[in-house]
Amino acid sequence: MKIAITGTTGLVGRWIAAAARDAGHEVTALSRPAYTLGDAPDLTGHDALIHAAFRHAPGRYRGGEGDDPQGFIRDNLDGSLRLFAAARDSGVARVLFLSSRAVHDGHPDGTLLTDDMPVLPTSLYGEVKAQAEVALADMATPDFLTASLRPTGVFGPGLPQKWAPLIRDFLAGRAVPSRAATEVHGADLAEAALLVLGDPGMSKAYNVSDLTLDHHDLLSGVAAITGSHHQPPMREDARMLRVLDCARLHALGWAPQGLERLHRDLPQIIAESREG
Results as ranks from 00 to 15, higher is better:
59 G>Y: 14
104 H>K: 02
96 L>G: 05
203 S>Q: 09
207 N>Y: 11
133 E>F: 02
187 A>T: 12
14 R>S: 05
258 G>D: 00
63 G>Y: 11
59 G>C: 08
59 G>E: 10
184 V>H: 04
45 G>S: 06
109 D>N: 14
143 D>H: 09
24 G>Y: 11
8 T>F: 02
252 L>A: 03
80 S>W: 05
225 I>S: 06
258 G>N: 01
134 V>Q: 14
202 M>L: 14
50 I>E: 09
76 N>A: 01
180 A>R: 02
172 A>Q: 13
107 H>S: 07
115 D>G: 07
275 E>Q: 14
8 T>R: 00
154 V>R: 05
124 L>C: 09
225 I>E: 07
113 L>M: 05
83 L>V: 02
24 G>A: 15
121 P>M: 01
271 A>R: 04
26 E>V: 10
13 G>M: 01
70 Q>S: 10
149 L>I: 08
93 A>F: 07
237 D>V: 13
32 R>F: 10
83 L>R: 00
182 T>C: 11
214 D>M: 12
27 V>K: 08
223 A>P: 04
159 L>M: 06
147 A>F: 09
264 R>W: 03
114 T>A: 11
263 H>A: 15
154 V>Q: 12
255 A>H: 09
118 P>Y: 11
256 P>D: 00
42 D>T: 08
236 E>I: 11
160 P>F: 09
23 A>I: 04
220 S>H: 14
109 D>Y: 15
93 A>R: 13
163 W>Q: 11
149 L>C: 09
151 P>V: 02
201 G>D: 05
152 T>Q: 03
96 L>Q: 06
72 F>C: 07
165 P>I: 15
207 N>K: 12
185 H>M: 02
196 V>Y: 09
202 M>D: 09
95 V>Y: 15
26 E>F: 12
15 W>C: 05
65 E>D: 12
83 L>T: 01
68 D>F: 15
213 L>A: 13
183 E>S: 04
17 A>G: 08
48 A>S: 15
58 P>K: 03
148 S>W: 06
44 T>E: 07
29 A>P: 15
17 A>K: 05
123 S>L: 09
264 R>Q: 14
69 P>T: 13
142 P>D: 02
199 D>Q: 03
249 L>P: 00
107 H>A: 06
10 G>D: 11
136 L>D: 11
56 H>L: 14
200 P>E: 00
8 T>Q: 02
115 D>F: 14
59 G>T: 11
208 V>K: 07
47 D>W: 11
271 A>Q: 09
237 D>P: 06
166 L>A: 05
225 I>M: 11
160 P>T: 13
14 R>H: 03
105 D>L: 10
9 T>K: 05
213 L>G: 10
141 T>I: 03
22 D>Y: 02
110 G>Q: 14
14 R>I: 00
110 G>T: 13
58 P>S: 04
127 E>R: 03
242 R>I: 04
204 K>T: 15
20 A>R: 10
206 Y>F: 08
